Amino acid sequence: ATNIVSKVKWYNSTKNFGFIEQDNGGKDVFVHKSAVDAAGLHSLEEGQDVIFDLEEKQGKAYAVNLRIK
C-alpha cells in the first residue's frame, strides 16, 4: 500500500524505532530510524501526522518512504 496517512503512536529515538497507528484499525506499523533518516528527520513525535508506504518483509509490516503530512 502507498501514501497511507496516519499518526505516530510512539517513537523512541534512543532505541531507534517506533510504531505508527493504522487508521483502518489494522496492526501498528513498525518504523525504523533508517526510514526517519531517509525522510531527513531527526525523530518523530507522538501524534505526528505522517504519510508512508507499507512494505512487508518476512511477514512484518514496515513503514518506508516516510514523510510529514
Rank of each mutant, 00 (worst) to 15 (best):
A1M: 14
A1V: 12
A1T: 13
A1Q: 13
T2C: 12
T2F: 13
T2A: 10
T2N: 11
T2I: 13
N3I: 06
N3D: 12
I4K: 09
I4R: 10
I4N: 07
V5E: 11
V5G: 08
V5W: 11
V5K: 12
S6N: 06
K7W: 07
K9N: 02
K9I: 06
K9S: 04
K9C: 04
K9T: 03
W10R: 03
W10H: 03
W10Y: 07
W10P: 00
Y11V: 03
Y11F: 09
Y11H: 01
Y11I: 02
Y11Q: 01
N12T: 06
N12M: 07
N12Q: 07
S13F: 10
S13G: 10
T14H: 13
T14W: 12
T14D: 11
T14I: 13
K15H: 08
K15T: 07
K15W: 11
N16A: 12
F17N: 02
F17I: 04
F17D: 01
G18M: 01
G18Q: 00
G18N: 01
F19C: 04
F19M: 05
I20Q: 00
I20L: 15
E21F: 15
E21V: 14
Q22K: 12
Q22C: 14
Q22N: 14
D23M: 15
D23A: 15
N24K: 12
N24L: 10
N24S: 11
N24C: 11
N24E: 10
G25R: 09
G25H: 09
G25K: 09
G26R: 12
G26D: 10
K27H: 10
K27I: 09
K27F: 10
D28M: 07
D28W: 06
D28R: 04
V29T: 06
V29D: 00
F30L: 04
F30I: 04
V31W: 02
V31K: 00
H32Y: 05
H32A: 05
H32G: 07
H32F: 05
K33F: 09
K33V: 08
K33N: 04
S34E: 07
S34K: 10
S34G: 08
S34A: 08
A35C: 05
A35H: 06
A35N: 04
A35P: 01
A35T: 09
A35V: 09
A35R: 04
A35D: 05
V36G: 01
V36K: 03
V36S: 01
V36I: 11
V36W: 03
D37M: 15
D37N: 14
D37P: 02
D37V: 15
A38Q: 10
A38S: 09
A38G: 07
A39S: 10
A39D: 01
A39G: 06
G40F: 06
G40D: 06
G40A: 06
G40P: 01
L41M: 09
L41T: 05
L41F: 10
H42S: 13
H42P: 12
H42V: 13
S43G: 13
L44Y: 00
L44E: 00
E45F: 15
E45S: 13
E45D: 10
E46G: 14
E46K: 15
G47T: 03
G47P: 01
Q48D: 09
D49L: 15
I51S: 06
F52N: 00
D53I: 04
D53T: 06
D53R: 03
L54T: 05
L54K: 07
L54A: 02
E55D: 07
E55N: 08
E55F: 14
E55I: 14
E56L: 14
E56R: 12
K57M: 10
K57D: 09
Q58A: 13
Q58D: 15
G59N: 08
G59Y: 05
K60C: 10
A61C: 13
A61V: 14
A61K: 14
A61G: 08
A61W: 15
A61E: 11
Y62W: 12
Y62N: 08
Y62E: 08
A63Y: 02
A63N: 03
V64Q: 05
V64E: 05
N65M: 03
N65T: 02
N65A: 04
L66W: 00
L66H: 01
L66C: 03
R67I: 08
R67G: 04
I68R: 06
I68H: 06
K69H: 13
